[in-house]
Each structure stands twice: as C-alpha cells, then as structure tokens.
C-alpha cells in the first residue's frame, strides 16, 4: 500500500517524464439525469403507499394483530404447510416415475406417461379438485379386488374421499404432471458422454443413474422444483372451495363472523409472504450446494447473504469472526 503522499510524488514524476498532451485529462463518466427523475418518482409513489397503509383506518391493523396468532389461523397455517409438503412429496415421487416412463424405450409406458401429462396439464387444477371432491357422484362405491374378478373390500366413496384426501389427490396428481416434465428435462440435460464414461469404467445403469446422471440433473431439477414448492404453497389456497380449513379458509371463517374481510385477507397474505420468504432462502442454499464444480455458478444472492448473516449471528458474533475467513480483506 502506498500512502497518498507517495502516489502524489509518483504521479508528478510520470507527468514530468511523459509530458504528452493527454496526461492531465480526467475521464468523466456519462451522466444519467433521467435516473434521478425515475428515483424521485419511485420514492414518491412508495411514500404515498406507505402513508395510505399507515393512515387509512380501513386497513384495521389492530384486527390483523388481534387474530395474527389466533388458534384458528395457526391451525389453518399448519394445514397449508402439511398439505404443501404432502402434495409435493406425492408430486415428486409420481413425477420421477412418470419421467422415467416417458424416457423408456417401451412405447406403451412412454405413451401412457405422455397421455397422463397431457390430461393433467391440460385441465384447470380447480376443476380437478372439484371432480375429486365429487368423486362419489361418479363412483358411489370403490372396491378392491381382482380386475373384472371378485371383490375383497368395498368402500363408500363419500366416506373415503374427505376434503383432505380430495385436496391431496387433486393437487398431487396435477403436480406430478409438472414435476415429470421438470425431471425429464433434468435427465436430458446431462451429456450422453457422462453415461458412456461411467459405463466404460464398468458402472451399471442403476449406479450410473444414481451417482453420475441424477446428481448432475439435480442442478437443472432443483431451481424449478423450488419454484413449484413456493407456487404450491399459494395454490393450496384453492382448497377453500372444498371447505378444507387451510390458511385462507381459516381467515375467511373469522371474517364471515366479524365482517372484517380486508384485515383478514392482509393477515393471510402476511403469513404466505413469511413462509415463501423462508422457502426462498432454503432454495438458494440448496441450489448453491448442487452447483458445485460449475464454473458459471451465480453470484451469491441477496437471500443467501441474508441467510449466512443470520446463521453466522447465531454461531459466532461478527466481532469474533476472523476477517480472513469471512473474506473481509481482499
């Protein structure tokens, strides 16, 4: 490091040594006057928005606060989370199966998978939910037995298809169609040479898939799957049409009693935002893990930096963390 005085001496030295006409010119970056206009407009709009949110009494923030952690809402939140997890597990497992079927050389398997994907992606998920909910109208009794042969067990469809089961089937089977396409694209993205190299080393197909192809496909599969989870969290709100007490339906239960519709919608939105924010942070971390060895890895995202800072705060206070380890000095 040179002190400012050193630099001064150095620069005068060069100026003397090379007295060409360009030596004393300074570069002026291009000016952006319109940026300042844009900043002003955006800040003004933001101030107006904050002002009306705070001052307009119709928002009824006290009501939001009152019910924010009430029993009904928390139960609804739990139902939303449970449904999201179960639906995604069902969707991912069925999706992998459909993707492998789709890539199979057997035309019947790949055709069946294609037909499934075509149907479940081609009809609205809301319609599918309603059909599953009303399955009893289509099949009053559901039996287990040998196809076209004797029946071992007969079940009443009305008792079997509860709102929860209908929601699970409706959302899960729909999600599987989307996941199948994501998994298929992931497997396709891995270079054929990887499989050949693994086989040339004596690795069998299952081992090649597990150790070589799928870990690389994950890099392509995980980001859209994260999006699917976040999207599913919000899509589960559709189940309020079949009277399943999720987060949205629970807030509607309260507002139908108190007629405070807007504050309870705000309340539900805040909970959705909290959960999606956490999910986004988890997604960034997982993506990071699977981009190992990839030269073109994205720079650290805002979420990741936030997450690191939060977790570091827990393990060691920043003052004690050695600077070299955090990369503070470059």
């Amino acid at each position: 490091m040179k002190s400012p005085a050193d630099r001064h001496v150095l620069s005068t030295g060069t100026a003397v040594a090379a007295p060409h006409p360009g030596a004393s010119l300074t570069a002026v970056p291009v000016r952006h006057p319109w940026r300042w206009v844009a900043i002003f407009v955006v800040l003004m709009l933001a101030a107006m928005l904050v002002s009306t949110i705070v001052t307009n009494p119709n928002f009824e923030w006290d009501v939001v606060g009152k019910y924010f952690t009430s029993e009904t809402i928390l139960q609804g939140l739990w139902m939303t989370l449970l449904l999201t997890v179960l639906v995604m597990v069902l969707g991912i497992l069925l999706g992998i199966l459909l993707a492998v079927m789709r890539l199979s050389p057997n035309p019947v398997l790949s055709g069946a998978s294609g037909l499934y994907i075509w149907f479940f992606r081609g009809t609205p998920v809301l319609v599918q939910l309603l059909v599953w909910f009303n399955l009893a109208a289509l099949f009053p009794r559901i039996s287990v037995g040998i196809p076209f042969g004797p029946e071992f067990m007969v079940l009443d469809a009305n008792a079997l298809i509860t709102p929860f089961v209908a929601a699970l089937l409706g959302l899960g089977l729909n999600e599987a169609a989307y996941m199948a396409e994501i998994v298929r694209a992931g497997i396709h993205s891995v270079d054929e040479g990887q499989t050949e190299a693994a086989q040339a080393l004596g690795m069998r197909r299952s081992l090649t898939m597990r150790r070589i192809v799928l870990p690389q496909a994950m890099r392509v599969i995980i980001p859209p799957t994260g999006n699917e989870v976040i999207s599913m969290l919000k899509t589960t709100s559709l189940v309020s049409v079949i009277s399943l007490a999720d987060l949205l339906y629970s807030s509607q239960i309260i507002s139908s009693r108190t007629f405070q519709i807007i504050p309870l919608l705000i309340l539900a939105s805040i909970w959705y935002l909290i959960v999606t924010t956490i999910l986004t942070m988890i997604q960034s971390r997982i993506e990071r893990r699977y981009s190992r060895g990839n030269r073109r890895a994205d720079p650290d995202s805002l979420w990741l930096r936030l997450w690191r800072n939060l977790t570091r705060f827990h393990t060691a206070p920043p003052s004690q963390a050695p600077l070299s380890e955090t990369g503070g000095i470059r």
């Binding site: 270079d191 040479g193 040339a200 690795m203 870990p215 690389q216 190992r292 060895g293 990839n294």
Partner: peptide
C-alpha cells in the same frame, strides 16, 4: 460391465464427472 472394467477408455471430450 464386468468386462468393461478391464478395458480403460479415454474420450475426445474427456467426459470427466463435473460434480466430483
């Protein structure tokens, strides 16, 4: 696979496993 174990192969495009 057992026979391939005894035959090493080197490819034009290397085909190293990039995640390892």
């Amino acid at each position: 696979a057992a026979k391939r174990e005894q035959i090493g192969m080197v490819f034009q495009r290397f085909n190293l496993f990039p995640h390892m």
